[in-house]
Design a protein around this nucleic acid. Structure first.
Length: 381
DNA sequence: ATGTGC
């Protein structure tokens, strides 16, 4: 139980079971990031993998200095889980695929009233990026229909969750908005942090918080347009950001908790998603302040983006990759992306779950299985 | 990651 939490350096720990592969470069980046001025504690999650300078899948607690570059450009990236009104046995993969069509165009005019209503409710200003609202984006972002594969607790203990209904998991973020916020910060301050005394810190936080609300609205709009497309209704079960910075108290000390690919464990139920060819888990987090109240945000890349096509093209054709071992289908007309997001490019989700369970951080509630993963209809490469 | 860079 205890040995799944490794101490890498003073105040730097890594949550990883014996079965969980962590790349050396990622731990190097983790230790390096811990040396930033004001950094008090750093926790690597089991899905830790190398990023651009800073690792992905980690939580960083600092005092006196806030680091926008640690949050990265996709501020507010997160996971929303919706329950549809459609029973999974009443539909089929092919039917869903046909009904979905292309969901990447800007939202039609009739969505404007809802968008404006939500903007008002959220205190969200109009931005130059609002035409991207309701779009998934690229990279590891997706919208995925899933079904409950297994329940770990009696159904009666999960009121509101219906085993028969199709679920919709949306992974997206703040698109160009977060990118623009980080870029303008880096233009002025490079990768330097912002001290509590600098007005620029408050200015960043204000923009950051807008990006969180924008990203949450984006996931809601994606979910709603997918529901409309399949002729279903639905309701949100959860929405949790995994790229953000927020005020945090560690042992009575106030500071900044940066989460970069780290899911909060102090905000209710969350999904720990696997790759498109793997299970995801709905879990009840058990918050642990020493581990910065954070969890893995997914399976974690095993292979670098851009390497995957070379590694896998001798083994799988494009057609092979359109389906998974579950018989689920993948909508991804972008060949490069189809390989980059292949299940084999990711660590097994079971290892991530094992790590979190051994660390006493989650109670699994349900195992979810992919039915249809939507990436992009647009051709590329 | 990116209403993407050559």
């Amino acid at each position: 139980m205890g040995n799944c939490i490794q101490m890498l350096a003073d105040q730097v720990s890594l949550i990883a079971s014996a079965n969980t592969w962590i790349e050396g470069l990622a731990t190097q980046q983790l230790i390096k990031t811990a040396e930033l001025s004001g950094m008090q504690r750093v926790i690597g999650m089991p899905d830790l993998h190398p990023g651009r300078g800073y690792p992905v899948g980690a939580a960083f607690f600092s005092q006196g200095v806030l680091y926008p570059a640690l949050v990265g450009s996709d501020i507010g990236c997160g996971m929303a889980l919706w329950q549809t009104s459609l029973k999974h046995h009443k539909t089929s993969v092919d039917k869903l695929e046909r009904k979905l069509g292309n969901q990447e165009q800007p939202l039609e005019q009739h969505w404007l009233a809802l968008i404006q209503q939500r903007q008002q409710q959220l205190g969200l200003q109009a931005t130059a990026h609002d035409q991207s609202l309701g779009t998934i984006g690229g990279g590891n972002h997706f919208a995925e229909f899933q079904q409950i594969d297994q329940l770990y607790i009696p159904a009666a203990e999960l009121p509101g969750l219906d085993q028969q209904r199709l679920l919709l998991l949306v992974h997206s973020g703040s698109r160009g908005l977060g990118q623009q916020i980080l870029t303008s910060h880096v233009e002025q301050h490079n990768h330097q942090g912002l001290t509590d005394q600098q007005p620029a810190q408050a200015a960043y936080r204000q923009q950051h918080d807008q990006a969180l609300r924008w990203a949450e609205l984006n996931r809601e709009l994606i979910a709603r347009r997918f529901l409309v497309a399949i002729g279903s209704e639905g309701e949100p079960l959860l929405d949790v950001n995994h790229n953000l910075v927020s005020p945090f108290q560690l042992h009575g000390q106030t500071g900044w908790l940066h989460r970069k690919g780290a899911t909060p464990s102090d905000q209710g139920l969350v999904v720990i998603p696997g790759s498109r060819g793997d299970y995801s888990w709905l879990v009840r987090p058990i918050a642990n302040p020493d581990l910065l109240c954070s969890l893995a945000h997914g399976a974690g890349r095993k292979w670098k983006r851009g390497d995957c096509r070379q590694r896998l093209s001798h083994k799988y054709s494009v057609n092979d990759l359109r389906y998974t071992r579950f018989g689920s289908q993948v909508i991804c007309a972008d060949r490069e992306l189809l390989y980059d997001e292949a299940p084999e490019a990711y660590k097994p989700a079971s290892a991530i779950m094992e790590s979190l369970q051994q660390a006493g951080l989650v109670e699994p509630l349900a195992r979810l299985k992919p039915v249809l993963t939507y990436k992009t209809r647009g051709e590329c490469c």
